[in-house]
Amino acid sequence: MTQVKMTVNGKDASGDVEGRTLLAQFLRDDLGLTGTHIGCDTSQCGACVVHVNGEAVKACTMLAVEADGAEVATIEGQANADGSLNVIQQAFQDHHGLQCGFCTPGMVMSAAALLKENPKPTEADVRHYLDGNICRCTGYHNIVKAIMAASGQDVSAIAAE
């Protein structure tokens, strides 16, 4: 077992892990942060997307030991300090950007990464960026709309509600 220490959502976190322990497992099983979902476990679906040192990564395809010393952000740290939903989360609610919700943590984390590097994406930019986030309920329209709205753009012309 190896001891790992990292910052998760701004707080110090540590634990003893095996070499094979995935970051997703460490977050969920050791830290109890079960908002990071494991969907496919083969790095296709994106339900496990978290940020490591500010970059979106698939937590099911990164070893926990490789996040030693890193700053990790998960869905649990996305809400505002007073507990209210952040802009992206609120936009998902306002625009019905989820149905079953399983993919939503990854969608929100990917959206946050996208808007950080591209604050005013086009609809095509959003769709392209979500290449690695699979949703089996919504058909993506409302997810795309929510992300466009979260970027402060007028979404009234975007079809499907």
Binding site: V49, V57, A113
Partner: peptide, 9 residues
């Protein structure tokens, strides 16, 4: 290659 999260690793 792949998708944004894959490209970050």
């Amino acid at each position: 290659i792949g998708d944004p999260a894959v490209r970050n690793r």
